[in-house]
Each structure stands twice: as C-alpha cells, then as structure tokens.
Amino acid sequence: MKGIAVSTTVNGDAVEYVCHGRETLLDVLRNHLGLTGAKEGCGTGDCGACSVTLDGELVCSCLVLGAEVEGRTVETIEGMADGDKLHPLQKRFLDGAALQCGICTPGFLIAAKALLDRNNNPSESEIRYALAGNLCRCTGYDKIVRAVSAAAGDMRRQQKAQARRRATR
C-alpha cells in the first residue's frame, strides 16, 4: 500500500510528509521531520515525554496518528524559543536546575506552557495537577514546580510591562 500524503503546519511552518497508517505523530516528528525534541518514553500516553499541542490542545504525540494531522496545527518544543531568546519557562528550568537527564524536559515545558497559557497565576497544587501526565525520574518534581511558578511570575511581569507600554504610547 502506498503512503499517506499529509500537509500540515508545524511551529508555524507549512510541512508536507508521507507516512504509513500506523505511524504516530511522534514517529513523523522524529523520523520524517527531524524534530527530535519530543521524546518517546512509554509510547502509551503515560509519561508525557512526547507532549505537543495539536490545534492548541495538549496531547501525547505517541497517541496521535501521523495521518490525523492533515490541515491541523502542531506546536513542538522546537517552536518554543523566539530565535535565540528562550521562553521564560526554558530560562527558569535552566536557572533552577529543574532537570537532570533532560529526557522529560521538552514534555514538561510544553505541558507547563499549556497551563500558563490559560492560567497565568497557578497555585502549587494547580501546577502539580497540570503536570501529573509528565513523569520525571530524576528531579523529584520540586524544582520543576518551582521553575514553573517562577516563570509564571516572569510572564505576569512581562504582560504588565507590555500593558504599561501600550498605555503610554
């Protein structure tokens, strides 16, 4: 059987690929598009290392077929920084040593961003619930939770500063 031709948008770029029916979005990202930020941990939706957003919805890319993504919008860890400028979450993860081996980090960053995009001032408990689908076997989670909380503060300050600039313009 011939492959399935898919046209979609990944991190704002129009992308085309041919995949087989069984290939997941994670397979496509890593093996066809060279985007190896999303990791395969479990392959069954338990660990969150392959987290991406699909039309703005946080999902495990290992539980999405590559063929399903036709005409949709995918955001991966590769699209998180603005050129050389790291996202506040990425900066806080580095500054706060919220990672050790790093395998889970892209998934945590994507899931944390999905949380902060809808709640810019989450409580510790809200952060822990929102990241319950991401497993880390190194850090014990505390540094991750603190980094997300600190990044939320940074983003609120940025938003305030932007609002002030708009008001004085």
């Binding site: 939706g45 987290s51 919805e57 946080l58 999902v59 495990c60 539980l63 899931a111 689908g133």
Partner: peptide, 9 residues
C-alpha cells in the same frame, strides 16, 4: 480520565 494530555483527546 487520565492526564491533561489524555483529556486533550
């Protein structure tokens, strides 16, 4: 049912 990632699907 599941995590936020699972809820998305």
């Amino acid at each position: 049912i599941g995590s936020d990632q699972i809820q998305g699907r």
